[in-house]
């Protein structure tokens, strides 16, 4: 028995690896996708090494250099209390990336669990859960986020929860659809025949075949989450002031119109980050040959 199984396992191993390699090769040849990936890597490096890369402490106040235009000392200028904008943009990457990442992982976990349960169990559970998801999907993204914040109160944690809630229905619907198409396939039936429990089937057998699409969807959502996050920060509902966020820097810039550098650079950061996530998501979708999203 074990003898006859070994080659089969080996074949499976090589096949799944070669699929990964194919996807990686396709991604490498996807020009826009690689552009996006490069920019994302730059942002990730900025975020990870912010204390070493930033020329100043992002909270360091310098009353001698308030609202100073870009110069050798301050390449992107300073803000209304003399804080270095370049340093704040670099540290802002850290804040934004963390929020976006945590929010997406949270919504993936919750939405994925709802989708798995809904698609696998079916029947009444499915009906109730999906009507709930339809209801959530009918809300405009930012309006739903504002609703969640109105209930929980305005602070950073609640902003992250709001960003996660907003994206749960999308993941749930995607995963449910995938599960429905996988549920009756032979390998799931085989697992069931060998006596695997429901939870094991869901997690070990169904989830892996769904994961590719979920990853693509997550990367496609990233730019929308980033823009919603900075919108919340812009409205004053994100991280509290000493923490630098791109959105909140732009809100401050609206009180100092003469200082163009205050409104240009944080905006550019959001714009390029959102663009990069879009490009990378598209690239990943093409590379994994998944047909979801727009």
């Amino acid at each position: 028995m074990s003898q006859s199984l070994a080659p089969a396992l080996a074949i499976r191993e090589t096949r799944s690896e070669s699929r990964f390699v194919t996807a990686a090769r396709r991604l490498l040849h996807h020009r826009a996708g690689m552009c996006g990936l490069t920019v994302i890597l730059v942002i990730v490096i900025c975020a990870a090494f912010a204390p070493w890369l930033a020329p100043y402490d992002p909270a360091e106040i310098d009353y001698d250099a308030m609202i100073a235009p870009p110069s050798w000392l301050h390449p992107l200028g300073t803000d209304e209390i003399g804080r270095d904008i370049l340093s704040r943009v670099i540290f802002g990457a850290r804040v934004s990336l963390q929020i976006v990442f945590v929010a997406i992982v949270l919504s993936l976990l919750v939405g994925g669990a709802i989708g798995l349960a809904s698609g696998y169990v079916g029947g009444r559970t499915d009906n109730v859960l999906m009507r709930l998801m339809d209801g959530l999907l009918a809300f405009p993204l930012l309006v739903l986020a504002l609703g969640v914040i109105a209930v929980l109160g305005p602070d950073l944690i609640n902003a992250i929860i709001a960003l996660a809630v907003v994206n749960v229905p999308g993941f749930a619907r995607l995963v449910r659809g995938q599960v429905l198409s996988v549920r009756e396939r032979d390998f799931v039936q085989a697992a069931r025949a060998t006596g695997a429990g429901h939870l094991r089937i869901m997690v070990v057998h169904v989830w892996p075949s769904v994961a590719g699409n979920v990853i693509v969807y997550a990367s496609l959502r990233a730019s929308a989450v980033l823009i919603t996050e900075s919108s919340l920060a812009f409205l004053g509902l994100g991280a509290t002031p000493p923490t630098p966020t791109w959105g909140q820097m732009l809100a401050t810039a609206m009180e100092y119109w003469s200082a163009w550098w205050m409104s240009i650079f944080p905006g550019l950061a959001i714009f390029f980050a959102a663009l990069a996530f879009n490009f990378f998501g598209d690239g990943l979708r093409d590379a994994l040959d998944v047909r979801i999203g727009e």
Partner: peptide, 21 residues
């Protein structure tokens, strides 16, 4: 491509800068 990644608030700020100020 650009229009889809453009955050509303930044677009608004840029428009005010250019056309109003």
């Amino acid at each position: 491509m650009g229009g889809m990644a453009l955050p509303y608030f930044w677009a608004g700020i840029l428009l005010i800068r250019l056309f109003a100020l």
